[in-house]
Amino acid sequence: MANLTVDFLGIKLNNPLVLASGVLGTSPAVMERCAREGVGAVTSKSAGTEARDGHANPVALAWQGGVINAIGLTNPGCHAELPILIETKKRLKPLGVPLFASIFAPRLEDFGEVARVIAEAEPDLIEVNISCPNVASDFGTPFSATAKSAAEVTREVRRAVKIPISVKLAPNVYNLGEIARAVVAEGADAITAINTVPGMLIDAYAARPVLKNTTGGLSGPTIKPVALRAVWEISQVVDVPIIGTGGISSGIDAAEMIMAGAALVGVGSALVNGGPAVFGKINTELQEFMRSQGYQDLESMRGLVHRRANDTV
C-alpha cells in the first residue's frame, strides 16, 4: 500500500485530501461526516466580521463543465462561528483530522480582528480567503487582485495570530508568482490555490443570466487546467507548501495536482456526484494509481513535472 500520509507544516494528515472552503463547512455535523468519509483535513466555510445571508436563489447550478456558484459568503459572523469551530475541532480530533478555518473580511483593517476571534478555536490553520469572486458588489475588488493588497492582508493576519496561515489566491491575475512571493514575504506559511474562476451562464430562452448574482465562480473539471497551471507557477517561486484546489474529482486528478507541486489537494465540487463519499473514492483511486506506477509515497510524486522539465533542459 502506498503511503498517503502527509506532514503539512508539522500537522499530520492521514491523506492529502482537504475539504475545500465553501463546501459543507457549515456545521460540526457536516464536517464530522466528511472526516468519517475519509478526508484528510476539513476547511470550514469562510467567516467574516458579521452574519451574512448570502445571495438569493439561484445560487448554484451544475452544468456540463462542473459547477457555477454565487452563494455569497453566507456565514454567521466570526463570533457565532467560534462555537461551531470549537465543537468541530473536538469531534475531528479523535478521528485524526485537522481543522482549517477560513476567514474573510470586508476591509483590510478587519482581517486581524476576525483572525484573532477565530484563533480562539485553535484551528490547525487559518485560511485567509482574499479571492471570493462573488462579493465584489458588496466589498469591491478582491484583495487577491494585486500583490500589494494581498501582502497587506497577510501582514494584518500574521500580526494578529501565531497559528499557521494559508492565503487563498485567485487565478485570474497575470502576476500570480509575484502575488505568491508577496504573501510569503509577509509571513504566509502556505498558499491555497485556486479560488473559483469568475464566470457566468446565460439562459438564452430567458435572455437572462441564470445566477441571481449575475456572475459566479466556476469550479469542477472545467477549471482543473487553470488550477494545475497556478500551482505549477506558484511552486516555482516560493518554498511554502501549497493546497492545490480546483477541479479535483479523481485519484488521477489528485496525482496530477501533487505532480504540479501541491502538498495537499482541495476537493469541493466533486461532492456534487455522490456527496462526501467521494473522499474515500479519490483516496482509493490515488492508492491504486501509486501502486500501479510504483510511487511509495506522496513525496516521490510531488513536483515531479518540475523535476522532469529540468532534466530535459
Binding site: 463546501v23 457549515t26 457536516v30 445560487v59 448554484a60 452563494i71 469541493g268
Partner: peptide, 18 residues
C-alpha cells in the same frame, strides 16, 4: 434549499432528528 446539489449545507437536517 439553496444549491440543490449537496454543496452549500443550508438544508442540513437537525442533528437530534438525525
Amino acid at each position: 434549499t439553496r444549491c440543490g446539489l449537496g454543496l452549500c449545507g443550508a438544508c442540513e437536517l437537525d442533528e437530534t432528528l438525525c
